[in-house]
Computed example of a mutant assay.
Amino acid sequence: MSEFASNVTERMREARSARDHARAEGDDYLVGVHTGELESLARLAQEHDLRLTVDDADEPVRAEGQPAGA
């Protein structure tokens, strides 16, 4: 995996962890912020033809309530 791909993958894991923590704390604003960050990182990966596996991303990245790939 390239350094760029590794960096994007790590940033996605960090954003997901922060989102999950915010969700556990009941902070809907931060959940939205971190979900947006995840969506942005997913677009960045797509723009650079990075194919992140479920293992890399832990789950499909999507807006809350939207199907994967939306």
Rank of each mutant, 00 (worst) to 15 (best):
32 G>M: 09
48 H>K: 05
46 Q>F: 11
24 A>W: 01
13 R>E: 13
33 V>H: 14
20 D>P: 00
10 E>C: 05
49 D>G: 08
46 Q>K: 15
65 G>M: 09
50 L>R: 00
22 A>C: 09
27 D>W: 10
49 D>N: 10
48 H>Q: 10
28 D>S: 13
27 D>L: 09
50 L>T: 06
59 E>Y: 02
29 Y>D: 13
56 D>G: 02
55 D>A: 15
60 P>R: 00
47 E>F: 07
55 D>M: 08
57 A>R: 15
31 V>N: 08
35 T>A: 12
65 G>S: 09
30 L>W: 14
22 A>M: 10
41 L>N: 06
6 S>I: 02
44 L>V: 09
46 Q>C: 07
41 L>K: 05
18 A>K: 14
45 A>Y: 02
39 E>N: 12
24 A>M: 09
64 E>A: 14
52 L>W: 05
15 A>Q: 07
49 D>A: 10
55 D>R: 15
61 V>N: 03
68 A>C: 07
55 D>E: 15
45 A>I: 00
23 R>H: 10
32 G>A: 08
59 E>A: 13
35 T>D: 15
44 L>H: 11
69 G>R: 01
36 G>Y: 07
52 L>V: 07
28 D>F: 06
16 R>C: 00
58 D>H: 08
12 M>T: 08
32 G>W: 10
45 A>M: 04
49 D>R: 06
21 H>R: 14
43 R>V: 03
38 L>R: 04
54 V>N: 08
42 A>G: 01
10 E>Q: 14
8 V>Q: 04
29 Y>I: 05
29 Y>L: 09
60 P>Y: 09
58 D>L: 14
29 Y>R: 08
12 M>C: 14
62 R>Q: 11
25 E>F: 04
35 T>P: 00
23 R>K: 14
35 T>C: 10
23 R>C: 01
9 T>C: 09
